[in-house]
């Protein structure tokens, strides 16, 4: 008996790629839309107990008072460190460097404290600039040299 020719049987098994490619592209679109370039953030740590001298501040000297004044729009108008009027944050940084250098002992900066006294309406970015000038600097090879780490803000003085 002659068998009916059913044609050649192929060894190749075709997998349906379409659903997989659909899902893969959907995943890709999801990740692309949720992708954000995030700028690294860092913190300046300050410890501010409610009132009265804390145990940490008993062994420190009197804090260096830094006064930041502002105009009605919140822009910085003046910096006074101790009794000295300064022009900019670079001068404040030099002032702090001189204070740390004058302080005797290897851990001089560890015992020093700065109190920032700011006008109520001053823009917060100037506070961060002041904290940056006070707390350290970055060397040419990218290392951070710490200066005064004990920084506190004076209580708010709401304008009447």
């Amino acid at each position: 008996m002659k068998l009916r020719n059913t044609g050649e049987l192929s060894d190749k098994v075709d997998i349906q790629m379409t659903p997989m490619i659909d899902i893969v592209f959907l995943l890709l679109i999801f990740f692309i839309f949720n992708f954000r370039i995030v700028v690294q953030e860092g913190d300046f740590n300050i410890r501010m107990p409610v009132a009265g001298p804390s145990a940490a501040s008993i062994d420190t000297q009197l804090p260096i008072r830094v006064r930041l004044t502002s105009d009605d729009e919140g822009n910085l108008t003046g910096i006074v460190a101790g009794d000295r009027k300064l022009d900019n944050f670079s001068d404040l940084h030099q002032f702090i460097l001189a204070q740390v250098g004058n302080d005797a002992g290897p851990d001089g900066a560890d015992n020093m404290e700065v109190e920032l006294d700011c006008d109520y309406g001053l823009k917060y970015r100037y506070v961060i600039s002041a904290v940056t000038a006070i707390s350290g600097y970055v060397t040419a090879d990218g290392h951070i040299v710490k200066l005064i780490q004990k920084i506190k803000l004076s209580p708010p003085k709401k304008p009447s």
Binding site: E41, F44, I46, P49, G121, K123, Y124, I128, P155
Partner: peptide, 27 residues
């Protein structure tokens, strides 16, 4: 960056009233 420093201080004061005393100012 444009927030009023006085408002930041008020928030810190409120935290102090609730016994929080460690702050991290983020930049």
């Amino acid at each position: 960056g444009d927030a009023k420093t006085g408002v930041v201080q008020e928030v810190m004061q409120l935290c102090q009233e609730n016994d929080f005393e460690i702050f991290a100012l983020r930049a």
